[in-house]
Design a protein around this nucleic acid. Sequence first.
RNA 1: GGCGGCGUAGCUCAGCGGUAGAGCAGGAGAAUCAUAAUCUCUUGGUCGGUGGUUCAAAUCCGCCCGCCGCUACCA
Length: 511
Amino acid sequence: MKPKYYITTPIYYVNGAPHIGHAYTTIACDVMARFKRLDGFDVFFLTGTDEHGQKVEQAAAAAGMSPQAFTDGTSDLFKAMTQRVGISNDDFIRTTEERHKLACAELWKRLVDRGEIYLGGYEGWYAVRDEAFYDEDELTTRPDGTRVAPSGAPVEWVVEPSYFFRLSAWQERLLAFYDAHPDFIAPNSRRNEVTSFVKSGLRDLSVSRTSFKWGIPVPGDPAHVMYVWMDALTNYITAAGFPDEGSAKWAFWPADLHMVGKDILRFHAVYWPAFLMAAGIAPPKRVFAHGWWTVAGEKMSKSLGNVLDPQELSDSYGLDSLRYFLLREVPFGNDGTFSRKALISRLNVELANDLGNLAQRSLSLIARNCEGRLPDQGARTEDDAEILAAAAALLPAVRTQMERQGFGDALEEIWRVIRAANAYIDRQAPWALRKTDVVRMADVLRVLADVIRSVATLLQPVMPEKTAAMLDQLGVPADGRDFAALATPLPAGTVLPPPAGVFPRFVEEAE
RNA sequence: GGCGGCGUAGCUCAGCGGUAGAGCAGGAGAAUCAUAAUCUCUUGGUCGGUGGUUCAAAUCCGCCCGCCGCUACCA
C-alpha cells in the first residue's frame, strides 16, 4: 500500500486570464506531485477554478453573458493553461459543479449544528465602487463633509443581515495548533506574520452576503449566498469526496500541502483550519506561501504592459527550460525578478553547457568507442567511487529539500554533482584512455553514464520532457525510471540510440 | 504608529562567536571527447553606519540610516 500524498494549487479566480503567476504556482505543485509519484507515493494533485462572487457576476454582466456562460469560458482558459505547461493534475475542480455545492452545504450545516455559525448583522462603511467595506480610520473626510475610501470612492453606512462564523472563539486553539505543528505555515517569516495576526485578536467573520446572487445559497436561507472564501476553500475537501467520508478519495484528507500565493495565506492558514476544526474535520498539514515575480522591480500589471505570458515564454525558450528557470532562479518563497537575460544565462550555462554538454560528450564517446553499447560496471578507482557516492547521496539530499519545498536548493544539490562530473571526465580523460587503456576507458564511461542517469532521474519532476529524452539515450526502460529503480544497475551491453543534443544553446537572433 | 525581516565580492545569495564563502561576471593557463562546450588557477569585500559585550563579532546587544513584509472581511 503506497503512502498517500495530496497536494493542491489554489483554485484560480476566473475574473481574468491566467498569467505567469498562475503558471508558477501550478508548476511548483506539479514538480512536487511528480516528485512524490516517482518517490513511491499515491498522489492526488488538484487544481481548478473559483467561480462565484460579485466580481464574476459583474464581469459577466459587463460581457453581456450569464455568469455560468462567462465562467465556463474563463475556466476553460485555465484548463488550457494547465495543459500547456505540462501539468499532471489528477482532477480539475470548478466551484460551480454540483459535487461542490453539496459539499459546501454540508459543511455549512455542520457548522450551524455545532453552533459555530449564527445570524447577525454586518454594518460598516461601504464603497459601492470598490465593493468593499472600510474601517473608520481608513477613511478621509472631504471638505464638503462626505467620507471617501483610500481609493477616493465615496462610502455609505450600510447594515445588512449576515451569518457569522465564531472565529473569535478559535484564536487560542489556532495558536495552539500552530504551536503543535511548527511546519504548518511556511516559510518561517510567514508563520510569524500569521501568528502575530492571530495574536492581535480575531473578530467573528461574516460568511454570507445578500448584496449579490452569484454564489452558493445558504442552506435554509436562500436570501444569502455563502462568503466566497468559505465556498472556495471548501473545494479542497470536495475533491477529496466530502461529505462522503467513507469514499476511497477521502483517504487523501487531510491534504499534505496547500500551495498558495502570499496574498491568500491568511485565508488558508487562519480561516480554513478554523472552519475545519469547528466542523470536526482535520485541518491540512501544511500551507506554503510563495512569492511574486516582478519585472524590472515592478509588479506585473496590465496597465504597465509588463505581464508575462507563460505561453510566449514557453514558445521562445522551451517549456522545460522555463520550468527549470522559475524554480532555480529564486529561493522558493521569496519574490523574484524576472529577466530574459537571466533566463537565457541559466539555460545556456546550466542546461546546455553543464548538463547537456556533459551528456553529449559522454554519450558520444560511448557511441564511438564502445560500439554504441552501455559498458559494464568495472573495477572502481577512488575517483570513480567518489563521484558515484555523490550521485547516490543525491536522492536523500533532494528529498530533504523537497520536503520543505526548497526547489532551488534541491537543484543546486544536483548541479554540484553535475559540475563534479565535468571535473571527473576531464581528470579521467577517456578520450586519451582510448589510445592507452580501452578497458579503463569503458569503466570511466560507465561511471559517467550512471551519474547522468541518477541526475536525469532526479530531474524528471522539473523537466519531464528533456529528461525523458536523456533517459532514452541512456537506454533506461520507460518503466524503470522511478527513484527506487536507481538501486538497480542498468544492464551492460544495452544498445544505445545515437546521441543527440538535449539542451541546445539559446542564441539570440541578430537584430 | 505597532510587530517582524533584510542590508556580506560587479550581480544573485550562503555563512550567524573562533584566520571572509559559492554560483555568475572579469583575468591567466590547460585540454581538444563534446552543443566554441569543459577543467585548473586567479582578481575582487575595512560583511549598511556607529557604540558596546567578549580573549575573539558578518555572527550577540543598543542606537542610527536605507529597503521590505504583516497590521482581516474584493478575491
